[in-house]
Amino acid sequence: MDAGPQDAHRSGGPPAASVEHYIGLMSGTSTDGVDGVLAEFDESAIRIAATASLPLPEALRGELLALNAAGPNELARAAHAANGLADHYAQAVGQLLAASGLAPGQVRAIGAHGQTVRHCPQDGYTLQINAPARLAERAGIAVVADFRSRDVAAGGQGAPLVPAFHAAWFGHRPDCVVLNLGGIANLTLLGDPVRGFDTGPANMLMDAWAQRHLEQAYDQGGAWAASGRCHEGLLARLIAEPWFGQAPPKSTGRDLFSLDWLHARLSANPQWARLAPADVQATLLQLSVRTIAAAIARYAPHTREVLVCGGGALNAAFMAALGQALPCRLATTAEHGMPVQAVEALAFAWLARAHVHGHAACLPAVTGAKHATIAGCLYPA
Rank of each mutant, 00 (worst) to 15 (best):
G4H: 08
A8C: 06
S18A: 15
M26N: 08
G33M: 06
V34M: 10
D42A: 13
A45C: 13
R47A: 12
G71W: 05
P72Y: 00
P72V: 02
P72D: 04
L75Y: 08
L75W: 09
N83C: 06
Y89R: 11
Q91N: 09
A99Y: 03
S100F: 07
I110G: 01
H113D: 12
G114L: 07
H119C: 03
N130W: 03
A133P: 01
I141K: 05
V143C: 08
V144M: 02
R148M: 08
G155P: 04
Q157R: 12
P160D: 06
A168N: 10
A185D: 03
T188Y: 07
G191P: 12
A202Y: 02
M206C: 11
Y218S: 12
G222P: 05
E232F: 07
L235Y: 10
A240F: 09
P242F: 08
W243R: 09
G245D: 15
P248I: 09
K250E: 07
D255C: 07
L256D: 06
S258K: 12
S258I: 03
L259F: 08
D260P: 01
Q271N: 11
W272Q: 03
L275Y: 02
A276G: 05
A276T: 05
A282P: 10
V289Q: 00
T291Y: 05
I292D: 04
A297T: 11
H302Y: 12
V306Y: 00
L307E: 00
G311P: 07
A316N: 01
A317F: 01
Q324T: 13
C328F: 12
R329E: 13
H336R: 14
A342Q: 06
L346I: 10
L346K: 05
F348R: 10
R353C: 03
A354I: 07
H357V: 02
C362T: 09
P364G: 03
K370A: 15
T373E: 11
C377R: 14
L378R: 13
Y379F: 15
